[in-house]
Each structure stands twice: as C-alpha cells, then as structure tokens.
C-alpha cells in the first residue's frame, strides 16, 4: 500500500512523456518515416523502372496497372514520384544542413561576443535579406550554372543568414541568465560557455526553424527544378515532373498533380514534426 502511489507516479511519468507528444507530432513522424523509407528504398517499392519507356501505354490515365498513370513516353508516374523521393528528401537535408551549421556557429559567436563582429554581421544580414530569397538564389545559380550541387551552394550562401540571426538572438537572451555569468566566474573558456552551456539552451527554436526550412527547401528545389535550374531531366524530381506535365495539363492532369500532392504531404509532415519537436525540447520546470 505504501509503495503503490510511488509506482503509480512512475508509470504516470512515462505515460506523460507520450502524452507530451501531440497527435499532430505522431502524424508528422509517420509521414516523414514513410517518406524516408520511400527515399531510401525506391527500387524495392516502385512497381516499375522509372526510366523505362512503354510505348503501349502512353499517357494512360490512372488504372490498375499504373496507379498514377503514365507520361508521354509511357513511364510510370507512380514509380517516378517514388524515385523522386530520394532526390527531394536529399534536397531537404543537404540544402539546409550547411546553412544550419554555418548559421548556428556564426550566430552563436556573434551573439556571445557582440561588439564589432555584430556590426559587420548586421550589415551582412541587411544586405542579404533585402533581396527576395528566390531571386538571390536564382542569381547565384545563374553564375554557377544549373545542377543540384550548385543549387545547394546557392541556397546555403543565402540561407545561413536566417539561422545565424535566430541563433544570435537566442544566445543573447540566454546570456541574460546568471548561469552564463556563473560560467565566466568559474573561469570556463568562452568556447565551453558558448557550446556546452548556452547552445543547448538556445538551439530549440533553431531546430524548429530547421524543420520548416526543410519543407521550404523541397519547395525551393522543386521550383528551381521546374525552372530548369535545379535537377536536370531525365532525373525524376518533383519540380522536373511537374514541369514535364505542364504541356499536358488539360489532357493528362495526373502528370503534374501527383508530384504536387507529394510535395504538399511531405511539407505538411515537416511542419508537424517541427511543432512537436518544439514541445519536446522545451525544458521542464
């Protein structure tokens, strides 16, 4: 009897952890996990070779054989959308991870040291964010030439600023706490205070932004693919697929609609996970 409440309390704690995971978060996680599986194992899942022509089934509408229909060369749209998962999920990660790493480092250092570095940083930010994001990225791609790698470079050149700005503000807010001063009084090195003490407490909003940014990166990458500046045909990529279907939008609507739906669902998954992560990372008490 005396131990019962204690045991109950512990079970309650575990239960509470799952309770903290909002239903939206679970939906988002499911979407992203499925997307990841599609991205990693397209060859096992796709029913057809994405690049195999089938001239017996040109532009056939969705049917038992081809769930998402076929294109003007008889390629199976479902298989092409599935194969595009690996390109687009890779895009979500690679187009953002370098922005994240560079932005977090610079933002943390600038937020910690302030002074002259802050003035220089401020001018950089002003210069970059006064241009529309897409226009700037297109300009960089135009200089470097089209292609996936150059697209990643272009997005990183512009994108790190947003992470750095967020990080700087969060670090400055955390510095108002006495534990930062306590670290200095304990004689800890600046790098220890920044990366061991301040960063773990300041990173949450950046991670949340990262999740939305990955969704945006897919959108941006598809846009560039659509414009012919990102992935190049015949590679299966959602933007490229939509562009290919553009001319047949009245006769073969599935060619553009199906990759479009894939973009929407994946983006939705990223935002849901972003919100859920924000809840989980919030320190308790």
């Amino acid at each position: 009897m005396t131990y019962a409440p204690y045991a109950q309390k512990r079970r309650f704690a575990v239960f509470k952890f799952f309770q903290r995971m909002q239903p939206g978060f679970i939906v988002g996680l499911t979407i992203l996990s499925l997307s990841l599986i599609l991205a990693l194992f397209p060859s096992y899942i796709a029913p057809y070779d994405p690049n195999a022509f089938d001239f017996n089934a040109v532009q056939s509408p969705p049917s038992d054989l081809h769930w998402f229909g076929t294109d003007s060369l008889g390629r199976d749209t479902l298989s092409r959308v599935i194969w595009a998962y690996s390109v687009n999920m890779q895009m979500a990660f690679l187009a953002t991870i370098f922005s994240l790493l560079i932005g977090v480092t610079i933002g943390a250092l600038v937020g910690y040291y302030r002074g002259f570095s802050d003035v220089v940083f401020g001018r950089c930010v002003d210069a970059i964010i006064t241009f529309p994001f897409l226009v700037l990225v297109i300009a960089v791609v135009a200089v470097l030439g089209p292609g996936l790698i150059n697209m990643y470079i272009a997005i990183t050149v512009v994108g790190w600023v947003y992470y750095a700005r967020l990080m700087r503000a969060e670090i400055m807010a955390q510095m108002a706490n006495d534990y930062a001063s306590a670290g200095k009084v304990m004689g800890y090195s600046d790098s220890r205070i920044i990366f061991r003490h301040l960063l773990p407490n300041a990173i949450t909003p950046v991670i949340v932004y990262w999740m939305t940014d990955m969704a945006l990166a897919i959108l941006l990458g598809s846009s560039l693919g659509y414009l012919g500046l990102g992935a190049q045909p015949p590679e299966a990529e959602w933007g490229v697929l939509i562009a290919e279907g553009r001319n047949f939008i009245t006769t073969a609507w599935w060619l553009s609609l199906m990759p479009g739906i894939a973009i929407v669902i994946t983006g939705f998954g990223f935002s849901l996970v972003g919100d859920g992560v924000a809840d989980l990372l919030r320190p308790r008490g």
């Binding site: 006495d178 534990y179 670290g183 003490h197 407490n201 008490g285």
Partner: peptide, 26 residues
C-alpha cells in the same frame, strides 16, 4: 585569460536568482 581563471579560482561569486544561475540542462 589564464590569470583571470586563476584569480576566479580564488575569488568566487554566487548569484541572486536561484532559477537562472544554474544551467537547466545539466
């Protein structure tokens, strides 16, 4: 930097706010 660390080893400080003076994640 090194002198400062040595000095702080011998001169320590405690802060007012018990809620912000400890890193919440450690």
């Amino acid at each position: 930097r090194a002198e400062q660390r040595d000095y702080n080893r011998r001169v320590q400080m405690m802060f007012q706010d018990p809620y912000s003076s400890l890193n919440p994640r450690m």
